[in-house]
């Protein structure tokens, strides 16, 4: 059945759209992970919508909590007091430990620098192809957020680092569970060094540990080593869950990251280079 002129035009337009996408994809190949201007523009135009939606629902939630849940306030207040009490104890113990190595004035300056450099951000979006790749934050260059800044969760465990695009009010964070990410890590007990990358279903792989290494074991905690020059050392990342060996030179070490999506509504971005403090 021959197609009419109108239908032929439609097919031509459709073919044009497909060709446009193919060109768009092939143009990115030499650029690697660098986002194109087109992608940055789309992100800049539509991420404020995400920002608006989250702000709206946070406002509604706040209203609900303020006016309808007064009965819970007392209990919450007591819970928070208990938590503050414990945190103060912990803080004092850490200060006392630090005093053995540094002077009191130096410690006060250090702590005040750290508290000034923490930027609390809300998570306003997840990666559309796989939630374990990246998240979008409600703070951007206007708030001092820059590429490669370290992002931690509310318990101080590693979430990832800020990557492009960073717009005025939004920023994207590459999670440690992304396959393209690379974090220098070491095991806490045996100090075995490796590179952590994303694996599958939110798990990570600790790479480049030789098969001959018999020291590393399951259940061991891994933290950042600081060797890759982005993350400071000592940030907890996760726990080793399985270690297997195959024909290759290296062990296959699967790590369960501490990164928990149910607790990922708020994160902390460090606006200073934490490596300079250690």
């Amino acid at each position: 059945m021959p197609f009419s002129l109108k239908e032929r035009r439609k097919f031509a337009l459709f073919a044009g759209l497909i060709f446009f996408h193919l060109i768009l994809i092939s143009l990115q190949v030499p650029k690697g992970n660098e986002p194109t201007y087109f992608k940055k523009a789309f992100f800049a135009v539509f991420s404020p919508v995400q920002h608006g939606v989250v702000s709206f629902f946070q406002g509604v939630n706040r209203l609900w909590n303020n006016y309808f849940y007064f009965r819970q306030v007392q209990r919450q207040n007591q819970g928070m007091r208990d938590e503050i009490f414990l945190l103060r104890q912990e803080n004092q113990t850490l200060k006392n430990t630090l005093l053995k190595f540094k002077g009191e004035k130096e410690i006060q300056e250090l702590l005040s620098t750290i508290s000034r450099s923490i930027l609390v951000c809300s998570v306003i979006g997840y990666d559309s192809s796989d939630i374990h790749k990246s998240i979008v934050l409600n703070r951007g260059s206007r708030d001092g957020v820059k590429r490669d800044m370290v992002v931690l969760d509310r318990r101080g465990r590693l979430v990832g680092r800020v990557i492009d695009p960073v717009t005025l009010k939004q920023a994207r964070v590459q999670l440690v569970t992304d396959k393209e990410s690379g974090v220098g890590v070491l095991s806490e007990r045996q100090r075995v060094v490796g590179i952590l990358t994303g694996y599958a279903e939110g798990k990570c792989l600790m790479k480049y540990v030789y098969r001959t290494n018999k020291e590393i074991g399951e259940g061991e905690e891994v933290s950042t080593s600081g060797f890759e020059g982005i993350y400071p050392s000592g940030i907890p990342v996760g726990k080793i869950i399985t270690i297997t060996e195959d024909a290759t030179l290296f062990k296959k070490i699967v790590v369960e990251p501490y990164l928990d999506f149910s607790e990922l509504d708020e994160v902390a971005v460090f606006t200073i280079d934490l490596r300079e403090l250690s």
Binding site: H21, L24, P35, F38, K39, F42, G125
Partner: peptide, 16 residues
Amino acid sequence: LLQDSLSLGLFGVAGL
């Protein structure tokens, strides 16, 4: 393309 812009992946795959 909008879905692609909300992802770290190649821009254009979901578009296509």
